[in-house]
Amino acid sequence: MEPMLTTIGLTKNFGGLTAVNNVNFSIYPGDAQSIIGPNGAGKSTFFKLISGEIKPSRGKIMFNGKDITKLPQTKVSHRGIAVAYQITNIFPLLTVFENVRVAAQSRKTTFNFWSKAESHSEISDQALHILEEIGLIQFRHDIAANLSHGDQKRLEIGIALATKPELLLLDEPTAGLSPTETRQTIELIKNISEHLTIILVEHKMTVVMEVSDKITVLHYGSLLAQGSPEDIRNNEEVRRVYLGGVKM
């Protein structure tokens, strides 16, 4: 089987700082992988490179056998890669329903001026379906900005899901969540990973260990280790630079 996504020597310099350094990474269809690493390791930057939001200084990104390195962000989105951002990135004054509906609409139509937006029932149905999946259906009429932090984090995932991705990049989806909310989000991610390929960035090791088939460790932008949760847990170097202070 071919990998779904492969990065070859992926590098990003910000002036003198190398945020992502010569990273080779690949993920197969249906897998759920995690990327861990200390703050500033370059995890979010790695996601921004894959999603086309920023362009690499060097290296190549292959998705479904095609080179997408130079593709603009909007095109990458249409190829089937979506991001749920670390810093909540929703449409604050739209309703919860409209947040997801407008994201779902992106797969169908933009320059349609004459029909009513809600008359496109397959789009609305998809949005409602996603709202049920992420557990926000009862808040669908509320203004998104009024949701709690935890609910906004899940709406963030909902927006990403609505663009019908093949590959979903989740950037710290449980950051700042209570234990109960974290539990809900873990269940959500497990559900999603049944039908989608996922790359997860997380600091909470419980989440990482429970969800991922394979873990990649980044340190100062470089790949430090890669392997099964078991391997990573027992890796001396990883323990030294990262896991030392973290409960496993």
Partner: peptide, 22 residues
């Protein structure tokens, strides 16, 4: 219309609308 909704999405959060593929 669907276009009108995209306008509102752009007003609310242009980068996010772009990351949705608009």
């Amino acid at each position: 219309s669907p276009f009108g909704r995209v306008l509102e999405a752009v007003r609310e959060n242009d980068p996010r609308a772009r990351s949705c593929g608009y």
